[in-house]
Write a protein that binds this DNA or RNA. Structure first.
Lengths: 222, 222
DNA sequence: CTGCAAATTATGGTTTTCCGTAATATACTG
DNA sequence: CAGTATATTACGGAAAACCATAATTTGCAG
């Protein structure tokens, strides 16, 4: 079982619940940080002192407040931690249930588990900790495990996202084309942008552009 | 101090934290419900048994899962509870920090307190409970209290919201007009809808309809 | 009831978006 | 290198959205 655990989480309630969960598992060496910056500092110091953490549980989104921070999200924190301590086990612990982001966490940041906050999250968290402490397997909350494995047959690329973002930002199609041309984005003709939009509308089953932007916003794609 | 308290909240972590908070305040008669439907049932039964609750703490947004529910949000729950037990003290306990929605809760549903989930929410919650138990004053988490008092000079009415919602749902302007005509919504001409959209775009500084829907979605208006 | 102001509706023209077709360019295969 | 598939670009007409102006209706005070 893990000996030394750190939690990055801004909400008091989750701190409390995780603390209690760890207590149940007889893990007493437990620290928590309400800001990503603090979490990284603690992990660095522990490494220097030759008493490194062996588990990081990290939320993904952190509320902004008066304090100026360098690291604003769990994604960034995890990325940075991976660089300085590659062997650390990492659990992402979040309300985020959107496919692409989670996929990226496993693929790019090599997290070891993803626990979805919800009606059964404490049970899931315990399971995750147990799996991770006894093996090198990954753990994913069952509610999203299936969604994660279904692959999008149609890949939405970088340009698609750019178009969607510009649209949601109030840019007209003609203006987007101008921007693309002046910044050397490859497909930059009227037809190309129109065709891509048409494909996107088809894929997301959107009736029109307003609908498309609305859907993709809800899905967290933009 | 309150004697009998019920919490409507889907996340285990918040349930746990609230339970502990109430314990600190020596409130032991405490129930919680993970679904709005269950909360309403319990409140109804307690009324019938002549042992009504005297405080409801309710989250606003509830995750959808396999279970079919009649009441899907805390807003609706609060509305319904107000009808059957007008004297019940109600604390909305949510991550929601958008002005119009909170305002509406105080004005239309006459909630007694709004506690924002965040880095200091447990402290706020304790304060709210203490204020409510000893007086008829309202309580609002300080982070949003100021934002709440700034008034929107231009009032966005019901029809505006309807138009925005239909738009974000992929309905074309012509279709919206049809729907309005067949359901007797008063201004239902092409011009009227166009004029309202134009006003809305002006007010929200939106370049076009896509932008407008994007902005109002972000603001939590739709 | 009359007259005024505000809201709603009607009308017509302009711009933007939409969508099909076709031409051209690019990439990859044998 | 030729051939084929795919992506990009070009063009033109149709539909939807946009916008200004004017006519009509509605609500209300006198």
């Amino acid at each position: 079982m893990f000996k030394k655990v750190i939690l990055a989480e801004d909400f008091e309630e989750f701190n409390l619940a995780v603390k209690q969960t760890l207590n149940d598992l007889n893990i007493v060496d437990f620290q928590h940080a309400k800001y990503c910056d603090d979490a990284l500092t603690k992990i660095k110091r522990a490494l220097q002192d030759n008493q490194p953490y062996d588990l990081l549980i990290s939320d993904l989104s952190f509320k902004k407040d008066h304090r100026e921070v360098k690291i604003g999200s769990g994604d960034e924190l995890i990325q940075k931690v991976r660089e300085i301590q590659p062997n650390l086990k990492i659990i992402a612990y979040s309300i985020e249930d959107k496919n692409p982001r989670i996929k990226s966490l496993f693929e790019n940041s090599e997290i070891d588990a993803f626990v979805l906050k919800g009606r059964n999250s404490i049970v899931d968290l315990k399971k995750a900790i147990q799996v991770l402490s006894t093996s090198n397997e990954k753990f994913i909350s069952p509610e999203i495990a299936s969604a994660l494995h279904e692959k999008n047959n149609y890949e939405i690329d970088d340009v698609d996202i750019k178009i969607l973002k510009y649209l949601s930002d109030g840019t007209s199609q003609d203006e987007i084309i101008e921007i693309f041309k002046s910044s050397d984005v490859k497909p930059n003709s009227k037809s190309a942008v129109e065709k891509r939009l048409s494909k996107l509308k088809d894929f997301f089953k959107a009736n029109n552009t307003v609908h498309l932007v609305s859907i993709t916003k809800d899905m967290g794609i933009i």
